[in-house]
């Protein structure tokens, strides 16, 4: 057990934590925007899958990581637009359309992978970028400042998202639309436009989450590559109380628990693997129970807006 506290293990654990947290953080930040505007997008996992495939395929055939990332973002936006059309314009049940989107992403990425690639192949993903000077800081330097560029972007997005939500007119409009769309509408805000924007931005981040797996972490594509991480991301939004910082802590907690349980197993600590696997989930549930996130939910979450119907 004492081995767990050695610097080597701690460095490794925290490094793994950042790697695992990155796709969750992208997806959960995106979902935060979507939900803050009142739309629950359960299709995150499907968006991640199709974007992960798109990014992987571009890198496999063309080689440019940057183009792969852009393609993943565009796929995300397109799927976000589809989600918005169904749930905002057509006012359909958000849960059903989200699950539909998820199944579409799962099926379509699987199909395209089979037709266009066929078998498991690996690509060269985003390399680690050592930030000079900062990476020299003892202990923390190698953990925080020796990662690939997507990790930096994901964590840089946390304060940016916070700023947008809390300090700009755009954020005010998004929050108002999620809390009381009729009030926003009566102030001349285009409720549908704000929801389209929020959902599409969220879906774009989900696309980056997909890329963060296929061309940055595992550097390959396989059927159901995300293994349900999109759904974890949705749960993290509730966990984080709909705030970027809360969502980040959620993603970090979940990931550090995962990384810890792997180390427990590697070091041969006598814990049954099944129990160790449950650790992140148990921890999340415990924190969720203790923290009071009730009442923080956007009041118009899941409710389509139709002018004059309150």
């Amino acid at each position: 057990m004492s081995e767990l506290l050695s610097a080597n293990v701690l460095t490794g654990m925290l490094n793994t934590m950042l790697t695992l947290a990155t796709p969750l953080l992208f997806a959960a930040l995106g979902e935060t925007f979507s939900q803050r505007s009142g739309v629950v997008n359960l299709g995150v996992d499907g968006i991640m899958l199709l974007s992960a495939f798109g990014a992987f395929y571009v890198v496999l055939t063309n080689g440019s990581l940057f183009l792969g990332l852009v393609v993943a973002m565009l796929i995300g936006i397109a799927m976000g637009a589809a989600m918005s059309f169904v749930s905002v314009t057509m006012k359909a049940e958000q849960g059903v359309s989200g699950i539909g989107l998820q199944m579409f992403g799962l099926g379509m990425s699987s199909l395209l992978f089979k037709v266009m690639v066929g078998t498991v192949k690996t690509v060269q993903g985003f390399p680690r970028v050592r930030i000079p000077l900062l990476a020299e800081i003892p202990f923390l330097g190698p953990i925080l400042f020796n990662n690939n560029v997507l990790v930096y972007i994901a964590f840089a997005l946390v304060p940016i998202c916070w700023y947008v939500l809390e300090r700009t007119t755009i954020g005010l409009a998004i929050k108002a639309v999620g809390q009381n769309p009729a009030a926003a509408d009566s102030r001349g805000i285009n409720v549908d436009l704000v929801r389209y924007g929020s959902v599409c931005f969220g879906a774009m981040l989900a696309g980056m989450a997909g890329a963060a797996i296929s061309i940055s972490t595992v550097n390959l594509f396989q059927d159901n590559l995300t293994a349900g991480q999109g759904f974890i991301a949705v749960a993290l939004v509730y966990f984080g109380g709909w705030t970027p910082v809360g969502v980040m802590f959620g993603a970090l907690l979940f990931s550090v628990a995962n990384s810890l349980q792997l180390w427990l197993q590697v070091l041969g600590v006598n814990v049954p693997a099944g129990l160790a696997n449950m650790l992140p989930y148990i921890l999340t549930i415990v924190v969720l129970t203790i923290s009071v996130s009730r009442g923080k939910a956007p009041a118009a979450l899941n409710r389509p807006f139709l002018r004059g119907e309150n």
Binding site: T16, A273, M278
Partner: peptide
């Protein structure tokens, strides 16, 4: 040393498990 991820399909966690072994 053994690790079990608890999933047949979670590639990302499997990658993390392998990296953990390598660091070890």
């Amino acid at each position: 040393a053994e690790t079990w991820t608890g999933s047949f399909s979670d590639v990302a966690l499997m990658t993390a498990a392998a990296q953990t072994h390598i660091l070890n």
